[in-house]
């Protein structure tokens, strides 16, 4: 069993890894700049507005909606939100009650850990 992790030896040490990440990011940025330089720019007023399927989209709708974006995750964990997330009601006596329940559970777990149960 390793006594301690050693970062650094070998080719993929943290410094080389960081340097190559920065290098690649830089190269990517250069590519973007180059493509902007090379490509023809013919902006029309129509192109500068936001549109979807030929219809204009108002600016307020273009804001990324984080709630909506993450709804798949929420759907996957729905039981969690229904049974545990819903318990976060902000009620003080509930907090205290959970402390007591936690204490009871901890007694069992500690006893198990110490080899008593």
């Amino acid at each position: 069993m390793a006594d301690s992790v050693v970062f650094g030896p070998g080719f993929w040490g943290p410094i080389i890894a960081t340097a190559s990440m920065l290098l690649i990011a830089g190269a990517g940025y250069l590519l973007i700049l180059a493509s902007r330089r090379i490509s023809p720019r013919r902006p029309t007023s129509e192109k500068l507005t936001t549109y979807a399927c030929g219809e204009d989209v108002s600016p307020s709708q273009t804001r990324p909606d984080a709630e909506f974006f993450f709804s798949p995750i929420r759907r996957v964990f729905r039981p969690f939100y229904r049974y545990i997330g819903a318990k976060h009601t902000g009620e003080l006596s509930l907090y205290v009650w959970w402390v007591l329940i936690g204490a009871l559970v901890l007694v069992v777990l500690t006893a198990h850990g110490l080899g008593v149960l």
Partner: peptide
């Protein structure tokens, strides 16, 4: 070890 269960739990709850 039996006698340490409750004291350790008390500490764990408090620090937890």
């Amino acid at each position: 070890a039996r006698d340490l269960v409750i004291p350790l739990t008390c500490f764990l709850v408090g620090i937890g």
